[in-house]
Amino acid sequence: VPQRAWTVEQLRSEQLPKKDIIKFLQEHGSDSFLAEHKLLGNIKNVAKTANKDHLVTAYNHLFETKRFK
Protein backbone atom coordinates (compact mmCIF):
# COMPACT_ATOMS: atom_id res chain seq x y z
CA VAL A 1 0.00 0.00 0.00
CA PRO A 2 1.49 3.36 -0.98
CA GLN A 3 1.95 6.09 1.60
CA ARG A 4 0.53 9.58 1.20
CA ALA A 5 3.12 11.53 -0.76
CA TRP A 6 1.88 15.01 0.20
CA THR A 7 0.14 16.83 3.04
CA VAL A 8 -3.14 18.68 2.45
CA GLU A 9 -1.21 21.97 2.39
CA GLN A 10 1.23 20.63 -0.21
CA LEU A 11 -1.61 19.32 -2.38
CA ARG A 12 -3.28 22.73 -2.44
CA SER A 13 -0.01 24.58 -3.00
CA GLU A 14 0.87 26.13 -6.36
CA GLN A 15 4.32 24.51 -5.98
CA LEU A 16 2.94 21.04 -6.65
CA PRO A 17 2.13 20.56 -10.35
CA LYS A 18 -1.13 18.84 -11.27
CA LYS A 19 0.89 16.43 -13.42
CA ASP A 20 2.68 15.08 -10.33
CA ILE A 21 -0.62 14.28 -8.62
CA ILE A 22 -2.01 12.67 -11.79
CA LYS A 23 1.14 10.57 -12.18
CA PHE A 24 0.84 9.35 -8.58
CA LEU A 25 -2.86 8.52 -9.01
CA GLN A 26 -2.23 6.66 -12.28
CA GLU A 27 0.64 4.67 -10.75
CA HIS A 28 -1.33 3.62 -7.68
CA GLY A 29 -5.06 3.75 -8.46
CA SER A 30 -7.02 0.85 -9.90
CA ASP A 31 -8.35 1.27 -13.44
CA SER A 32 -11.95 1.43 -12.23
CA PHE A 33 -10.99 4.14 -9.72
CA LEU A 34 -9.18 6.13 -12.42
CA ALA A 35 -12.10 5.77 -14.84
CA GLU A 36 -14.56 6.90 -12.18
CA HIS A 37 -12.52 10.04 -11.56
CA LYS A 38 -11.81 10.58 -15.29
CA LEU A 39 -8.07 10.19 -14.77
CA LEU A 40 -7.25 7.61 -17.43
CA GLY A 41 -5.14 8.52 -20.44
CA ASN A 42 -2.28 10.81 -21.30
CA ILE A 43 -1.14 12.88 -18.31
CA LYS A 44 -1.06 16.10 -20.39
CA ASN A 45 -4.66 15.63 -21.50
CA VAL A 46 -5.86 14.76 -18.00
CA ALA A 47 -4.08 17.87 -16.65
CA LYS A 48 -5.97 20.03 -19.15
CA THR A 49 -9.39 18.82 -18.03
CA ALA A 50 -8.90 18.16 -14.30
CA ASN A 51 -8.70 21.07 -11.90
CA LYS A 52 -6.64 20.96 -8.72
CA ASP A 53 -9.68 20.50 -6.42
CA HIS A 54 -10.78 17.49 -8.45
CA LEU A 55 -7.32 15.94 -8.13
CA VAL A 56 -7.09 16.61 -4.39
CA THR A 57 -10.51 15.01 -3.90
CA ALA A 58 -9.49 11.97 -5.97
CA TYR A 59 -6.19 11.68 -4.07
CA ASN A 60 -7.97 11.69 -0.70
CA HIS A 61 -10.66 9.33 -2.01
CA LEU A 62 -7.99 6.85 -3.16
CA PHE A 63 -6.64 6.54 0.39
CA GLU A 64 -10.11 6.47 1.97
CA THR A 65 -11.34 3.68 -0.32
CA LYS A 66 -7.95 1.93 -0.68
CA ARG A 67 -8.68 1.19 -4.34
CA PHE A 68 -5.03 0.65 -5.19
CA LYS A 69 -3.73 -1.42 -8.10
Rank of each mutant, 00 (worst) to 15 (best):
V1C: 13
P2W: 03
P2K: 03
P2S: 04
Q3K: 13
Q3T: 12
R4P: 14
R4Q: 10
T7E: 06
T7P: 06
V8Y: 08
Q10S: 04
R12C: 15
R12T: 09
S13Q: 06
S13W: 03
E14R: 14
E14L: 06
Q15G: 11
Q15V: 07
L16E: 01
L16K: 04
P17Q: 13
K18G: 09
K19E: 15
D20T: 14
I21K: 00
I21N: 00
I22D: 00
I22W: 03
K23L: 09
F24V: 04
F24N: 01
F24I: 02
F24H: 03
Q26P: 00
Q26F: 06
Q26D: 01
E27L: 08
H28W: 15
G29H: 01
G29M: 01
G29C: 05
G29N: 01
S30L: 06
S30K: 05
D31Y: 13
S32A: 12
S32P: 07
S32C: 12
F33H: 02
L34I: 07
L34V: 04
A35P: 01
A35G: 09
A35Y: 14
A35E: 11
A35S: 10
A35I: 13
E36I: 08
E36T: 06
H37Y: 14
K38T: 07
K38E: 11
K38N: 11
L39N: 00
N42L: 11
N42I: 10
I43D: 05
I43H: 08
K44M: 15
K44H: 15
N45C: 15
V46S: 04
V46R: 05
V46W: 04
A47L: 13
A47G: 08
T49L: 14
A50H: 12
A50S: 11
A50R: 07
A50L: 13
N51G: 11
K52G: 03
K52N: 05
D53G: 07
D53Q: 07
D53I: 06
H54M: 14
H54K: 13
L55T: 03
L55W: 03
L55K: 01
T57R: 10
A58M: 07
A58R: 01
A58T: 06
Y59T: 02
Y59K: 01
H61A: 13
L62Y: 02
F63H: 04
T65W: 11
K66Y: 07
K66M: 14
R67D: 12
R67I: 05
F68N: 02
K69V: 06
